[in-house]
């Protein structure tokens, strides 16, 4: 028997964000256990490839390291229909596009994370969550 059951449940639900809409969109298809949601990493790079796929999209970004080498980072988001509702089209992030991107990193050290927010080189914000009940964000 687990002591203080309701307290434990509440804490666990709150920790998991189990009933928040935001969490629904963040990881509705698989558990987000592989990401460390207590950490964020931000980096500048150029888009290598935008894998606009179901059930999840991946934005691959080449990041130049201090020693001059390049590391490819992958940032996971929801699939195309969710990205579209967030105003992010496949053509918005063509290879070579400059970008500053923030994500929750993988716990295991691989160069990947869940996409939290990004800013394209021209200043356009790229938040992968829908901003309303619209097929495309209203201007």
């Amino acid at each position: 028997m687990i002591p203080n059951l309701k307290s434990t449940v509440t804490k666990t639900l709150l920790a998991l964000g189990g009933v928040s809409v935001a969490t629904t969109i963040a990881s509705a298809h698989h558990s987000g256990a592989m990401f460390d949601d207590q950490k964020e990493v931000t980096m500048e790079g150029v888009v290598k490839e935008f894998q606009y796929t179901n059930p999840h999209s991946w934005l691959l970004v080449d990041v130049t390291q201090p020693d001059g080498s390049t590391t490819t980072w992958g940032f996971e988001a929801e699939g195309p229909s969710t990205l579209l509702r967030a105003g992010i089209r496949k053509s918005d992030l063509l290879p070579g596009t400059k970008i500053t991107i923030t994500g929750h990193p993988m716990r295991d050290g691989r160069s990947a994370g869940s996409w939290v927010k990004a800013t394209r080189g021209d200043g356009k914000q790229m938040n992968p969550k829908p901003m309303g009940n619209f097929a495309l964000p209203k201007q």
Binding site: H30, S31, A33, M34, K48, W58, L60, T72, W73, G74, M106, D108, R110, S111, A112
Partner: peptide, 11 residues
């Protein structure tokens, strides 16, 4: 019993 990604094609 938790979740993990397998191999990435960019690693």
């Amino acid at each position: 019993g938790t979740s993990q990604f397998s191999d990435f094609n960019f690693v």
